[in-house]
Each structure stands twice: as structure tokens, then as C-alpha cells.
Write a protein that binds this DNA or RNA. Structure first.
Lengths: 367, 367
DNA sequence: CGTAGAACTGAATCCAGGG
DNA sequence: ACCCTGGATTCAGTTCTAC
């Protein structure tokens, strides 16, 4: 299918175009696209191998397309594809770009330099990220998306009520908790290996497209990969244009999209987290000043006491550890629920620490 | 209090220094600070706040002022204070910078350009953000912090076990859910208005300082504001240096910090990693007769065995070497922790050799 | 057939210290 | 500076295998 726009050039809709995205974008008619979703190379700069504690090797992103000789080279690449992308956007068009700390700051600055107007940065909080195996940094548990209008005065599309509905009637926030793409959704090649190292979950694109496009809008993805953007666009009744350099990815994407039915909501069902109470680490009571480091806690039976430390552990006579561990040790029990075991004193009264946890949970429910 | 460092220049500790942060930082001795926490301004309307690297002021009524020159001026300001900050850091020092989508991408790119090495970007997920009243965008529910080492090979401080303890035994992630600063913690001026527009919560600084400094470390905050960094540093037994241009903020901060009490020493101790335990050569177990030369060791999975030699090496089928080397070779693994891999037999029971190491370490602690 | 437990996996800038 | 070696280090899943 092609679509004719003012200027008589044809727009190749619902196709995957082979080639370098900058060249291809430059060959398409200007001001013809409503939304761009881009998942560019992150320039991860990985060095050696990484092993899990069980000695298995992590299958890293070592593909040639992620290699850049320097930040400067990456910046030039970024400016070039953003320029081409901006030309394609209608005046009221918008763009989403996803990245990690390796590249997102350079991408964000480049967006601003090119005249895009940032509307929000959105954090994808992964419910099941890969841990930091060596314990040398924080678990890298999120990626960042930037949502920007073509210019400061673009009348961008924002379906406020639709997103609010997706969020159980509460205004959608800038942090989205979604699982990574695995299980059956993760596309495999003929050998059973993952077809693409960085396939994005459809739930993420669902939220992006519901929130910032209308049915019939044209969505372009210059780094199409295995076509998550195209698959979700088709389900949601949006038109897509994919650009992808690697033949193997194009093949997988084409087969995938062919199987998609419009309004195929089944594929989007995000595993709903159990409706259980949120976990509140004891350390949070300390960080938030509800209990002071050095303060004494007393056991329910008044037989034992222990001091709170700055890291949210307790120290008693010859025992250190979590509220549960210290409670268990002092009672000589195999286990102990520290939340119901320990109390603190306020104004002469003895108060169970669980009261403070309830307080935090109540706050969390409010918004 | 001042502290004298190599080079005979005095470091003004636990003081709030009046002045422009770039000038003040340039007047302090190089390589003298362990950590910098910075919450730089990012209101682009306050053009008078911006300084070029040559210290000339950006003219707010400049006719040529547009979006582009505004970004350029902000970039120059950012590069200038980051350069000054980097000079102050010890080789193994690190920096935290907090910002929002208005400025954080420019700050992140500048950090990388100046040679800092990003360790994590951390999302502060606000549990009670201000809603988006007009319903034109997503609720801006987070801010971004960047944690970076002075250089790629900095041996930065990371108290992994302490943060894990704060999170009740689960590795700390890059997204931190903490409430915004309000209630009693929020400082008010004499008229009852908030004393500072963007006062950060102490819980945020608690986590930053527990995780990336040790007691006694010097923490500098070039945009001190009402002194959250100083207040938490004092509580946690860290030394602080604050720089603030506005007298009203300095006054509020000084009064605030004077009221803070340091936690006692025991409360400041945190959970430590096994890595900090003294090293015990396996040969010592043999020398001390805890294991006899010729004795057989068995792998944890019971699949392999090897004999102890008099020099503290093992000999198995076709392999000789350290407990680690033989374990790795037998398992075909890239590496192996021999201490947890090998067991010996005593009175019919299988005992991990690590028990003997712990015995030696306990003896070492006694004296 | 169902269930329990083992195996596997994910955009990762993932070691420190002695010779 | 490099080279070598000891030895510390994981969370939330999904899929596979054994019984």
C-alpha cells in the first residue's frame, strides 16, 4: 500500500524498507509522518566477557551495529538521523527515542539541539531486569524514553483519557513498570537463539501508540529490528513504515507482522502483578527518618533489645543482621517476622514497628 | 574546622562558603574531595544565573538570545562547573548530579565529555508527585540522578552490602521510590513560605551517602541551597563543604545543620562485603595441620575429587594447581571459588573447607 | 497427566591486589 | 606499566526434565 500526499510523492505504508535509515528517510516525502519511534544503537562499549555467579556466560550485545569509535562518531550519527527524522515529521508530529545511560544523554541533548521540544522523559522500570552479577554497581533496572514534539509549538497528540484508563483511572505517570520481553513473545531464529538481542516488549509500544497517536496515523520506525513497532501499530489500526538494514531482522519482522490481527489484544496482556501489599524494606523507615540510626528497638516480650544501624540492619549483643535475622537469633528460633516482633518507644509508649510500615503503605495507596 | 592536605592548602570542612561555586571550587586544593553531590540550577529563564567559562555574565536582555544560544550558554556553564568539580575530586572520587529532562541530558553529555565515567543513572521515583493539572502530558513523577566516577579507572566507593541491607536483602536497583520533601522536613522562611523551591529529601541523600561514601569522607555540594547534603553528611559522620551564593539559603542551612546530631559510631557501621575480610592462603590449612597432605577433597557436587599436597596445591586426574585452578579445570568453568567448591570428610560427615577458613579468621579477630 | 525441581536467560560500560 | 591469580558475585521469571 502507498499513500499519496501533497507533493505527489508516494509514502510506502506497512512495509519494511531495506537500507540505511538516513538514506531511506531522505528519500521519503517531507512532513508526511505523524510519529516516529526510534530504538537506536546504545553504544554499550562492553569490554570483556561477563559471567554469572554460576559461571554461565552472559550473551552480550556485541553486534557490529552497536560499535562506534568514539562519542564524537556517535554524536554525528545521532544528529544525522535526527535531522532526517525531523524533516519527515508533520508540523504537529512527535518522536519517541529509547536508550540507556550509555547513550540517552547524548540523544537527549541532540534532540534539543535539532529543535525538538521535550514533552516528557519516561522511565521504563523493568519488573525483571538482569541483576548486577559482580555487585559493583546498582542493578540497571530501567531504560529511558524521551518524548518530544517536532518543535516547541507543535500541537502534539496526547490521549490523556486513554492512558488514564490504562492506568486504572489514575493519571498516567512518567514511570512505567513493565516486564522485559521474554517467553513466547521473544522471537527466536531457526536455531532457537533469540532473533534480535534487544527486542522491546509489545506492552511498551502499546502504551506509546495509544497515548500519542490516533487510528490511521503514520508511525515510522527507523531502527525496525524485529518489528515490535509495526506489530503493535497493526494491532492498533495505525499505519507503519519500518526501515531496517539487516536482512535477517527484516525476514523475522515480516513473518511476525503477517501473523498479527488488528485489535489482537491477547498479545498485549501484561502479566498483572499480584494484588498483594507492596514490599516495604525496613531500611526505608531509617532513610525516611521514621526511626533514627542508634535508636533502640525492643522485642514484643520486652526480653531483648537491639540498635538500629544506618543501613537498616540491627545490632544486638553479638548479633547483626536484618530485623528478621536478629529476632530469630535472639529467640533461638529458625525464623522470625521482625515486623511484628520489634517495637520502638515514642512519648513513653511502646509502638510496634509495623505501624510505620502501614503508614508508608497508606501513603503509597493515596496516589 | 580546616583540614591540611598534601600541598599545605587548607580544606574548609563543615562550612558553608559564600560565593560563585566555580570561583570557590577553583580556590580549593585539587584532589581533596571524595564525593560531590550537585543539584545544579536548570531554570533557563534565569539567564542571569548563567556564566560563561571566562566568567562573563550572559546578558539577559541580549536580542540574540534564542533557544539555541540558551542551550549553548547552559552547556558552557555546565562544562565550567564540572571542570572545576573534577579538579577537586581525588582520583578515586565520584560525583552525583540530579536533574530533570530540562537539563539532565545536557549534564550527562557534559559529564562524559569531561572524562567522567558514568556508573549508573538512578531514577528517583516520587511517591507523591505534583499531578499534571492541565492533562496535556504525563505526570512528571521522577527526577534523574547520574552517578559517575572521576575517570574510567576510578576505584569508586560502593557499599554494596549496605545498600542491599537497606533493601532487605535484595540488590539495590537503579529506581528509588522515595517521597518528596514536605511536612516538617520542608524548611519554611519567616513568612511561612518554603525556604527553597527544590529542597531535596534527606532520604535521598541518606541512600547516596551510605552507598557511595565511608565515614570521614569529604563530601562537597557546589549548589548547597538549604543544605540537605550537609545535614545528612553530619548525621552520617561525613565531612561536608557547602558552596552557596544566596545569603538567605546559607542562613537557613546553617541553622538547620547546627540542630543536627551525629549518629553514634555503632549506628554508623554498616554491613560489609566478604571482600573486605583478610585473605587466608589455603596452604595455611595444611601448615597448621587442619588438613593433612594426602587427604582427599571432594567437590560440592560429589562428582570430582583431588588430593591435598604438602605445598597447599591439589592434584586430581591430570590436573595440578590451586584449589581454584583445579576446581575450574574439573568443571570446565572459566573460574571457580575453591573455598566453596571443595569439602573434606570428618567422622563420616562432609564439611566445606570454608569452615576452616572461617575458623582462622575468627582467631585473627580475637587478637 | 500433573508437579517439583533443575536449567536457563535478560541492552551489562560488572575485580583487586601482588609481583 | 603489565601479568597473573585468588576468589566474590544474582533476581524474576520461563522453560525444560524427571518422576
Amino acid at each position: 500500500m502507498t499513500k499519496h500526499v501533497k507533493g505527489a510523492e508516494a509514502l510506502p505504508l506497512n512495509q519494511i524498507i531495506a537500507g540505511d535509515c538516513i538514506d531511506v528517510m531522505n528519500s521519503l516525502p517531507a512532513a508526511s509522518v505523524d510519529l516516529i519511534f526510534a530504538d537506536p544503537p546504545y553504544n554499550l562499549q562492553l569490554k570483556g566477557d561477563l559471567h554469572r555467579p554460576d559461571n554461565s556466560r552472559v550473551d552480550a550485545v556485541d553486534d557490529h551495529w552497536d560499535q562506534f569509535s568514539s562519542f564524537r562518531a556517535y554524536d554525528e550519527f545521532t544528529a544525522a538521523w535526527l535531522k532526517a527524522a525531523r524533516r519527515l515529521l508533520k508540523p504537529n508530529g512527535a518522536i519517541w527515542v529509547i536508550g540507556s545511560y550509555h547513550n540517552i544523554f547524548r540523544v537527549g541533548a541532540a534532540l534539543q539541539n535539532e529543535g525538538f521540544w521535550i514533552l516528557n522523559d519516561v522511565v521504563w522500570r523493568k519488573s525483571n531486569p538482569m541483576p548486577n552479577f559482580r555487585g559493583k554497581r546498582l542493578t540497571n533496572a530501567h531504560e529511558t524514553m524521551i518524548w518530544a514534539g517536532k518543535s516547541e509549538d507543535s500541537k502534539y497528540t496526547f490521549n490523556y483519557e486513554a492512558l488514564k484508563a490504562l492506568n486504572e483511572g489514575i493519571q498516567m505517570r512518567s514511570d512505567w513498570v513493565l516486564p522485559i520481553c521474554n517467553g513466547h513473545e521473544r522471537l527466536k531464529d531457526s536455531k532457537g537463539d533469540k532473533a534480535h538481542p534487544t527486542q522491546k516488549p509489545e506492552s511498551l509500544l502499546h502504551r506509546v501508540l495509544v497515548g500519542s497517536t490516533n487510528p490511521g496515523d503514520v508511525v515510522l520506525d527507523p531502527f525496525f529490528g524485529t518489528g515490535t513497532t509495526g506489530a503493535v501499530a497493526k494491532m492498533l489500526g495505525r499505519e507503519f513504515i519500518g526501515i531496517e538494514r539487516e536482512e535477517s531482522y527484516r525476514t523475522v519482522a515480516a513473518a511476525r507482522i503477517a501473523k498479527v490481527r488488528k485489535f489482537d489484544r491477547e498479545a498485549l496482556s501484561v502479566s498483572v502483578s499480584k494484588r498483594s501489599e507492596p514490599r516495604v524494606p525496613f531500611g526505608q523507615l531509617v532513610e525516611r527518618g521514621m526511626l533514627r540510626p542508634g535508636e533502640e528497638l525492643f522485642s514484643m516480650n520486652q526480653r531483648h533489645k537491639a540498635k538500629v544501624r544506618a543501613d537498616g540492619t540491627l545490632i544486638g549483643d553479638d548479633v547483626k543482621g536484618s530485623i528478621h535475622q536478629v529476632g530469630a537469633a535472639l529467640e533461638g528460633a529458625p525464623s522470625c517476622n521482625g515486623w511484628t516482633y520489634w517495637c520502638f518507644k515514642r512519648d513513653g509508649k511502646t509502638v510496634p514497628i509495623d505501624v510505620l510500615r502501614q503508614q508508608i503503605r497508606a501513603e503509597m495507596r493515596e496516589q
